[in-house]
């Protein structure tokens, strides 16, 4: 379908240009949106090109944290020396996603807002509540290898495909949003929604809301982090399950732990129950297992993805084991 194309010189004009339209989309790297235009998944009335907004810097914050602009390319984010030094979990996560070519184009904001790769969502010939509310979920009873085991609903079992967002969830990142009503900050873990009975809404944002940057709080000294991704081939594949884990151990006791899971839910999944079990405990295989089992008690695998439960368990235990190795 023909659409209007506008290029915004600054964030405020981008939001203004997008306001009042129901079919509006911000265009940055285009690595997801352009595919969707071709596949007929979306037919916006207006595209607001934000790729040239002055939001492409990574800046150190006075509190020791980091501000990542919304149009920073994934490649540049992963290669940034401060990210590599202070947030290895994030650098690893970004590098494990997509391909070099795609990371060269894809942006921070776009990565957060990419849509599910559920094959039924991406195929306009099959019903999908996310694409067309009320038509039904084809994945239920269908091909669900990549689908959710946590937090799904009878209306949608899709997963969020981002690696970067999983790392940011574990880092307690804060997302700055500019909208019609001005600026606000949304914790990353609250940016994405569970599907419930409105699976067409991926996030809490409104159509004219523009992500301007993401702030990463500093990690206390002695904190270790890692990102592990399991997928069906060694490169260029979405996670079956991934884990971003941040751990600080003092004298053998867990002082700080943050675990986020990818590939298991409609959003980057913070494993709060597992964290609660671990906090204050002495590290060890048994407590690692008990922690993830507490998290997975709520798992509801589908016919085609039951393997994700033991996979998640093994992956998280192995990640915690690795992070606590050598800690006393």
């Amino acid at each position: 379908m023909p659409f209007d194309y506008r290029r915004a010189p600054d964030p405020e004009s981008a939001v203004a240009a997008a306001t009042g339209w129901s079919g509006v989309a911000f265009l940055a790297g285009g690595t997801n949106l352009v595919d969707h235009l071709k596949l007929g998944l979306v037919a916006p009335d207006v595209l607001v090109d934000i790729s040239r907004l002055p939001l492409d810097a990574v800046d150190e914050l006075p509190d020791g944290g980091l501000r990542v602009g919304a149009t920073v390319r994934n490649t540049d984010l992963a290669a940034h020396p401060v990210v590599r030094r202070d947030y290895p979990v994030l650098a690893r996560a970004v590098l494990s996603g997509a391909s070099g070519q795609i990371r060269n184009l894809a942006t921070t904001g776009g990565n957060l807002l990419q849509r599910t790769r559920c094959v039924y969502f991406q195929d306009i010939t099959t019903p999908c509540n996310k694409r067309e509310p009320g038509t039904g979920c084809s994945a239920i009873g269908g091909y669900t290898r990549h689908h959710a085991i946590l937090g799904a609903s009878a209306h949608c079992v899709a997963t969020h495909p981002s690696d970067m967002a999983v790392a940011m969830a574990a880092l307690d990142a804060q997302v700055a949003v500019l909208g019609e009503g001005g600026r606000r900050v949304v914790p990353l873990v609250e940016l994405h929604r569970l599907p419930g009975d409105e699976p067409h809404r991926d996030t809490v944002l409104s159509p004219a809301d523009l992500i301007t940057w993401v702030d990463l709080p500093p990690l206390p000294p002695g904190t270790r982090s890692l990102y592990r991704k399991v997928r069906d081939r060694a490169s260029f594949a979405f996670a079956l399950v991934s884990v971003a884990a941040v751990l600080r151990v003092e004298r053998g006791v867990v002082r700080d732990v943050r675990i986020a899971l990818g590939g298991v839910a409609h959003k980057p999944w913070r494993a709060r129950r597992a964290e609660d079990v671990l906090r204050g405990e002495r590290t060890g295989e048994e407590v690692f297992r008990r922690a993830i089992d507490a998290e997975l008690a709520g798992a509801a695998p589908l016919a085609g993805n039951g393997f994700k439960v033991p996979l998640t368990r093994n992956l998280v235990v192995s990640a915690l084991r690795e992070l606590s190795r050598g800690e006393r």
Binding site: Y143, R233, S235, F236
Partner: peptide, 20 residues
């Protein structure tokens, strides 16, 4: 139920990459 190959693109129909 539908009768077609649902993973009909290069993102979902996996072919070995160089890393494999």
């Amino acid at each position: 139920r539908f009768g077609h190959v649902v993973n009909h693109d290069f993102a979902e129909y996996h072919i070995a990459t160089n890393a494999d």
